[in-house]
């Protein structure tokens, strides 16, 4: 465990799935040199298979104090080969069909975007943005026989030492979130670095700073004046993803409230469309409690009363979402 922990809160009620975070990260870090297929930040549709495909069933994480076996996803079948489009021909020569993929992908990030689950009119989905969780008990770190992965004392950021990594990929298999990626060009593993070069200069991670929905707060968990402490510790309104994996993630999600179900006559019921069991699997047993808290605080705000939690989540001023010093 590090001395301090920098953490992120993502409010799933505000995520519109625009992928601005994905693009911010990609442009900053992964659009070159063997990283083209990697999405250190991805936004997937839940329910869904996600990215890489079926990551939740890919093993890894902890069973008590023992690492569970995990699998290494395949580029073509689980991550998805970067799709090559025939831009040259389409834009400058003119072809029919006009714009087409040059390869035939089996899977890509967002392959099942917006599919979700349920039958009309009770279909449902929400967006689930995912980055490395900079875990308190990182399975990736424990799995590396070379000690090439480390967790920084000063902020808990988990990094792969590129000079020590020899591309064995035990970390890729061990991370239950599949947030370590293998770079075949350099024969090394790489992952989200929580934008540490930005953070060290007091600038928030690119994915958080660029987020148009203002869903991402960044701060130290122990900083009582910071937004993350207030939402996670004081209000207990955000929860880690798949806590059952045992890695103790430091990305926290404000769980999504659900639209109500319609009955056979088309009347609105009080049943929620997103099954609570589904949310409990993702965010643990406290999710129902948190959803009630959110509803109550939202109702207060609706009545014109004060709600510190709602004010925090609304994020009137973007700069107040980040306190990283």
């Amino acid at each position: 465990m590090s001395k301090r922990q920098l953490a992120m809160v993502m409010d799933l009620n505000k995520c519109i799935g625009c992928q601005t975070c994905t693009v911010a990260c990609k442009v900053q870090w992964t659009n070159r040199n063997g990283r083209d297929y990697m999405y250190w930040n991805n936004v997937e549709t839940a329910p869904g298979k996600g990215y890489p495909k079926n990551w939740q069933e890919s093993g890894g994480g902890w069973e008590g104090s023992v690492l569970k076996d995990g699998k290494i996803p395949s580029l073509a079948n689980d991550y998805g080969m970067p799709v090559q489009m025939n831009y040259e021909q389409a834009l400058f020569a003119g072809t029919d069909p006009w714009l087409a993929a040059a390869n035939n992908p089996a899977w890509t990030p967002n392959w099942d975007e917006d599919e979700g689950a349920g039958e009309f009119p009770n279909s449902h989905h929400f967006y689930l943005p995912r980055i490395c969780n900079h875990c308190t008990n990182p399975a990736c770190l424990a799995a590396c026989p070379r000690g090439a992965i480390y967790k920084r004392e000063e902020d808990g950021i988990v990094l792969v030492d590129q000079s020590r990594c020899r591309g064995y990929r035990h970390c890729v298999a061990a991370c239950p979130y599949k947030k370590v990626y293998f770079n075949p060009l350099f024969n090394r593993s790489e992952k989200c670095i929580f934008c540490y070069p930005r953070v060290e200069q007091g600038i928030p991670p690119a994915c958080a700073k660029q987020c148009v929905g203002r869903i991402r707060h960044v701060g130290f968990l122990d900083d009582e004046a910071g937004p993350v402490h207030k939402i996670v510790v004081k209000w207990k309104a955000a929860l880690p993803l798949r806590p059952d994996f045992g890695t103790e993630p430091n990305v926290y999600y404000v769980p999504p409230l659900s639209s109500p179900k319609y009955d056979a006559e088309g009347k609105v019921t009080d049943e929620s469309r997103i099954p609570i069991e589904f949310l409990e699997k993702l965010f643990g047993p406290r999710v129902g409690e948190v959803l009630k808290l959110l509803e109550a605080e939202r109702a207060k705000k609706g009545r014109g009363e004060e709600s510190e939690l709602m004010d925090l989540l609304i994020a009137y001023r973007q700069e107040e979402m980040f306190k990283i010093r």
């Binding site: 395949s74 580029l75 073509a76 991550y79 080969m81 990929r169 293998f182 075949p184 060009l185």
Partner: peptide, 8 residues
């Protein structure tokens, strides 16, 4: 051998 374009 080393297969570029694979992760596994």
């Amino acid at each position: 051998d080393v297969k570029q374009g694979t992760t596994d």
